[in-house]
Design a protein around this nucleic acid. Sequence first.
DNA 1: CTGAAAGCGCTTACAG
DNA 2: CTGAAAGCGCTTACAG
Lengths: 338, 338
Amino acid sequence: MKIYTIKDIARKAGVSVTTVSRVLNKRPDVNPATRERVERVMAECRFVGNANARGLKQPDGDLIAIILRGRENPFLNALAEAMLAHTQGLKASFLTEFVDEQADEFQAAIRLSHEKRVKGFIFVGGRIDERSEVLQDMDAPMVFTTISAENAAFPRAASVSIDDRAMGRAAMQTLLDAGHRRIAIFGGIRQGDDGFAKRYAGAMDALSAAGVPFDESRFVQTRFSLSGAYESARQFFADKADTTAVFAMSDTVAIGVIRALKDIGRSVPEDVSVVGYDGIEMGKFFLPRLTTVEQPVDDIARQSVHVLMDMLEGGQPPSHIVVDAKLVLRESVAPCQG
Amino acid sequence: MKIYTIKDIARKAGVSVTTVSRVLNKRPDVNPATRERVERVMAECRFVGNANARGLKQPDGDLIAIILRGRENPFLNALAEAMLAHTQGLKASFLTEFVDEQADEFQAAIRLSHEKRVKGFIFVGGRIDERSEVLQDMDAPMVFTTISAENAAFPRAASVSIDDRAMGRAAMQTLLDAGHRRIAIFGGIRQGDDGFAKRYAGAMDALSAAGVPFDESRFVQTRFSLSGAYESARQFFADKADTTAVFAMSDTVAIGVIRALKDIGRSVPEDVSVVGYDGIEMGKFFLPRLTTVEQPVDDIARQSVHVLMDMLEGGQPPSHIVVDAKLVLRESVAPCQG
DNA sequence: CTGAAAGCGCTTACAG
DNA sequence: CTGAAAGCGCTTACAG
């Protein structure tokens, strides 16, 4: 199948390449008859423009990259997909870039800003740490989602997130209200004031308001995968069998923990209560259904896109938006028996 | 942040753009001192080449597209990821394209073959139907995965799949062996000899070998999502409450069915047995763990990549590879009580 | 080992 | 309404 160029089409239609380019870009200043003829030839040849050539000349509108670390994470995937849905009708075009769980999304951003002249970035489930420093040089606007960049001091970084501290507190409070006292927390590395650190701080708020001391050895730092959480839980419960409740900082972790509990002969929620975080779809189908902190995926997605466009086109300063999350009570938490 | 071009670098380093291009492409014919100087300037400027410009000249090695229909499907995602893993060290470069569940992956292929000069295609979880006809014109080699293209008569289409008929039979046999007779099948649209039709035919093989008639009204055509399967199952069991077992043509469907069963007060596997298909990770964590047909993801991925490269570089004819799947017995099937 | 020049496929002032 | 020509950032014979 020969690949036709704009030149081939021009020759076949008996016009100049300029004219072909015009009809290709649906410009108004073309004689209807000419346009029709060119369009027919293009259809016959199944002509589709060469994106590289076009990209070389046209700034591509504005290209925006949605960068997602962790291809398997169902929550982040849902978030990215929702963003794409809010992208329709915008002048900018969007691309989604997946980087490995272990990889550096900021290096990916730098690379994209050069290679593809990407003009704006949305980090889906990003982190902010010392590696983020490389972004200081970048003048493209960016937005962090599910994490606040308020204290990050990047000149052009906005953020959209839930109030992780308040929701961490709510999650823990749910467990406390059910009468639990020996509670474990399964979470990620806490650094600075990132999301995990805030959820942890919120949990501590609830605990100390209730006058319940927290035994540091009940904090488990786990990988955020089913198998990682499963192994962490097997190991933890072999040691701390008297734990009656778990606050898991993601639904995926919650599911891994529940499976491990079941395998050592303990039911959820009868023997151990579990509260998750994120609100993934599987949480509504799992047995038991997960009690969890539900992040408003669609809301976060919509706001993220709009905040970025406001910075990019409106020249507005970055803002740090906090959206409402809610704790949904389902089946994985029950009154403490112990 | 200024974006530097090869020209800027050349000027700053006091060489020609040709030389810069040479060091950029790591060609051997550059004076070490010159190379070092150019590299330093590039580093200082954080120079990264413009992909569009490069793509315009260089055939990009060979660009191969992995096309995946359905961004949410965990099985297909795992398959695509495994393919990428087998891609390391190959001369070709790969890109992953997601198309909507409802979209036409063949149109996407045509578009990519023009826009990005894609030279080969891997359809992850593709279909073969009347729409596929557009591929007749395409001379780029392609491979279908999880479905056989043996009878499709595309000149350059290879395929890698499991023996769906045999495995459909094995799935049904498992249920039969457990004593079940009133069995439902939850599957997709059967057309021609696609994967669903084969799984169905295999199930019929097992049934008729066992002398068990199949009640056509126990075939349920469902969407392949948690919620789709859930709704189908609620509706089906309201009518056919005496069904004691289900063969679900995907694990996701199996999970939706199990959740629905539980909600109408029936346990799996005590009251109803369920066998799934695919072997997604969640199946090992769900309660109960899923008895399922496990597709050898890594094997399919590796073979797909190699078959394509053989066609592309070795000029070999397309082959139709059948890889071994196995039925893994876990917890969702139990002896029939009824 | 190095550079001047042509060209990849397109777009866009500019002139008519 | 239409076309000739320059140029986007790079690569690659070709000549030295």
